[in-house]
């Protein structure tokens, strides 16, 4: 998969966001760095088809994307959003729900596999019986990461995915995503653990100031 963004941006009622040019190729790891509020989350939402581009081009596999194409794209990318918007249900029910979606049914899912990832992320297994609405930010974030991994996709869009984790876990999580050569990762994070060799850093400066 190849995602290209050229001279693109979004017009907001009182400002304008201009995105950096992007070339996301298979297996590439891209770290977007920039000021808070520059529009990094908006950039990810545009790629996933949640927000419309006001100008510029978004191309997937060298073709302009239409509204219908986003459905296909979303099935290939796993996304962890900044607020980890998991629905308020029992964690185990969440996994059942996630794998009840038609596209996700073929993905391998069992309590044993979930257990392995809980172990990796140092989450106690009894979390599975708790309501996600009552979990802490760090616990929810790890659930979000585990969900993304379990979907068995090859591309990831991660929006501040380690903000609630402690230092050793930040390092462990970023290592996991960055070391897989077949995974394509587009991440924005303020955590230095994502700055590693082989990661392309794309600066995203706020364009709001000075421009109307």
């Amino acid at each position: 998969m190849k995602i290209i963004l050229r001279n693109a941006g979004v017009l907001l009622p009182e400002s304008k966001i201009k995105f950096p040019n992007l070339d996301v190729l298979n297996g590439q790891k891209i770290l977007i760095q920039g000021d808070s509020g520059a529009g990094k989350s908006t950039l990810f939402k545009v790629i996933l088809g949640f927000e419309r581009l006001s100008f510029g081009e978004l191309m997937i596999n060298d073709a302009n994307v239409s509204d219908e194409d986003f459905w296909q794209l979303r099935r290939k990318i796993a996304y962890v959003d900044q607020d980890i918007s998991l629905p308020p249900m029992k964690a185990y029910d969440w996994f059942l729900f996630l794998f009840s979606f038609k596209t996700n049914r073929p993905a391998e899912f069992s309590k044993a596999i979930v257990g392995c990832w809980f172990d990796f992320f140092q989450l106690p297994l009894n979390i599975l019986e708790k309501n996600i609405g009552n979990l802490s930010g760090g616990e929810r974030q790890r659930l979000g990461l585990i969900s993304a991994i379990l979907l068995n996709r090859k591309a990831f869009i991660l929006d501040e995915p380690t903000s609630f984790l402690n230092k050793p876990l930040k390092s462990k999580a970023s290592g996991l995503f960055l070391n897989r050569s077949d995974w394509t990762v587009l991440v924005c994070s303020h955590d230095s653990e994502w700055m590693r060799e082989g990661v392309d850093v794309v600066p995203f400066l706020s364009s709001k100031a000075g421009e109307k």
Binding site: L48, A78, D81, S85, L86, P87, F101, L151, I157
Partner: peptide, 12 residues
């Protein structure tokens, strides 16, 4: 946000 997150997870 929650709805959009589910779309990103592959939901119709």
């Amino acid at each position: 946000k929650r709805y959009l997150y589910l779309l990103a997870c592959g939901a119709t």
